[in-house]
Design a protein around this nucleic acid. Structure first.
Lengths: 338, 338
DNA sequence: CTGAAAGCGCTAACAA
DNA sequence: TTGTTAGCGCTTTCAG
């Protein structure tokens, strides 16, 4: 009854069942032909003992690891868990399993996490963004395994990429806003050096405004804290400072939702007096009093597609490695139609 | 330049640096004394080659894996990423690393995920809840590694546990509500067979109400979908059905927030006409127009404490294995003070 | 301070 | 259908 410190091995199962280790291994992996008589014996012995295979030994021997490294900036952003669920779902049809690492938007940490994960010799890597340290890129290239960079397609991938063009997303939102007649436009977002995708949206956004001779008339940035509360605060700050504003473009839906709640409380006419738009298309918006205009980031689909590419490559296929999805604006009821 | 399919080994580094594999291994792990001359040589060779150690081989040889398996029901619940961040933070001071598995609130899936993770021979397990399949319990017991069950302390752990008493949380909220004079009390929550902690809160809640001769006068359950939108819908449903209601206890803050937004739109006096309370103390609440009464689930602290217990046990210590945290009600402004 | 030998627990490849 | 033989790439142990 006293539990040995050492865990059970194939040998234990072999001895109890009176079958060779090799055959036990076959049974446990459903490989090769085994008579159902021995199969029963082995299965019973394994179950009785409570044997759990040692994948470390198995992986070393077979040179195969059914793990896919997934590296994302954050888990608290809502966006990434959804990408993950797309990945998990797609991988469930294979024998691959996702393993998640978090970089906290810090390039050096990303590099470190990547190094750790590669040292477990996964079958593939899915990593958020196209911007990485030189060392990280080098590791990805040298790894010899399929790599899919996700979320963003404005740039050159190490290998494959699946995402949307954030620059284009910014441009399209700018066009829609201009078409609706807004001209005094403010931008509220995250501190951008951290977030390349928000930066690209902003760049696309200002670029299109500039073509119509419009400039962002105020802006405000935050980092950390409750996004909803920050959206509220920043909206107040900006409106106090620049009362002429007739539109606010938020870099994500959460701060947009905070702003929306604030403006509704103030009794401001939306989208007449002030229009609003966010980004991501988060589910949360469905519970708000008004539907915030936004653009879907195609999170789940990105996850699914990326996982499929990895699975196909692992299986020896060579699928199209550059996939750009094209989300449409949803106008909700905070952005007039042009 | 053509990358070999095979990845680099210690042997490659050994050959390039002209130092034995053993010494290379020592340098790369900072183990034992190595002259700084050879250390330099080795480090340079490893870097030039872009060598990434093979942890699979290392783990097999050393019988040591610096991974801690963390099994939680969901990533989209907000609550769990926060627990995770507590775990990561605490483990950062050690050489242990968390690896996350998700059970989707399904016992059989939990069992499967546990099995997969145990087959990688982690140094410890942190798992949400005290309810598991018999097989899962057996595996945990047989694993011979430290196991911490988290979130809930109403029950018997396999090994260690860190959490709060949800029954008590339900009782305390019931007392506060009764003290404030509310009597027509409704309960809105998740379909409970899935969620033992919500169930326990509900049980504690009704138990305390019963002692004062009060019964829940209406209830409504949901599963899936946007919690905020569900909270809104369910609140409407319940109020249409039972207009006499003077208090609604929500099983989580997100649906509570949805209900709050709905009631505010309806121009209902809160907390005069109707009082509200949720559970979890999520950050999101800070951005709402009114502060929802709630109770902190101590998420981060639970994560930290659980990780510390694992770390100490791995280090050979024997820390206190049962930790019950005691959250306090925050009344916000949706619950009158008794 | 450095190296050589012997496995860790499993699976590929081959033999019976 | 089953068994045998060699490692997988690293670390432990012991010898120099």
């Amino acid at each position: 009854m006293a539990s040995d410190k050492r865990s059970l091995t194939l040998r234990d199962v072999s001895e109890v069942s009176g079958v060779s280790e090799m055959t036990v291994s076959r049974v446990l992996r459903n490989r090769g032909d085994v008579s159902s008589a021995t199969r029963e014996k082995v299965l019973k012995a394994a179950k009785d003992l409570g044997y759990v295979p040692n994948k470390i030994a198995g992986a070393l021997a077979s040179q195969r690891v059914n793990l896919v490294a997934v590296i994302i900036p954050s888990l608290s952003n809502m966006v990434f868990p959804e990408v993950l669920s797309g990945i998990s779902q797609a991988l469930e049809e294979t024998d691959l399993q996702p393993v998640v690492g978090v970089s906290d938007y810090i390039p050096e940490k990303e590099e470190k996490v990547l190094y750790e994960m590669l040292s477990w010799r996964p079958s593939g890597v899915i990593i958020a963004g196209l911007e990485h340290t030189d060392a990280a890129r080098a590791m990805l290239k040298a790894s010899g395994i399929p790599v899919v960079e996700i979320m963003d397609t404005d740039g050159d991938p190490v290998d494959a990429m699946v995402g949307i063009s954030h620059r284009r997303a910014g441009r399209e939102m700018a066009s829609a806003i201009l078409d609706a007649g807004y001209r005094k436009i403010a931008f509220l977002g995250t501190k951008m050096p951290l977030d390349h995708r928000a930066r690209k949206r902003f760049e696309g956004f200002t670029e299109t405004l500039a073509k119509s001779g419009v400039e962002v008339c105020d802006r405000e940035f935050y980092s950390g804290g409750s996004a909803l509360a920050k959206g509220r605060e920043m909206t107040k700050t900006v409106l106090d400072r620049s009362p002429e504003i007739d539109f606010i473009y938020y870099s994500n839906d959460m701060i947009g939702a905070g702003g929306l709640l604030y403006l509704l409380e103030q009794g401001i006419d939306i989208p007449g007096q002030i229009g609003l738009a966010g980004f991501n298309g988060v589910e949360l918006l469905q519970g708000l009093p008004r539907q915030l205009a936004t653009m879907d980031a195609c999170r789940k689909e990105i996850g699914t597609k990326a996982a499929e590419i990895i699975a196909q490559r692992v299986a020896g296929d060579d699928p199209d490695g550059k996939v750009t999805l094209t989300p449409k604006i949803s106008f909700g009821d905070t952005l007039k139609r042009g």
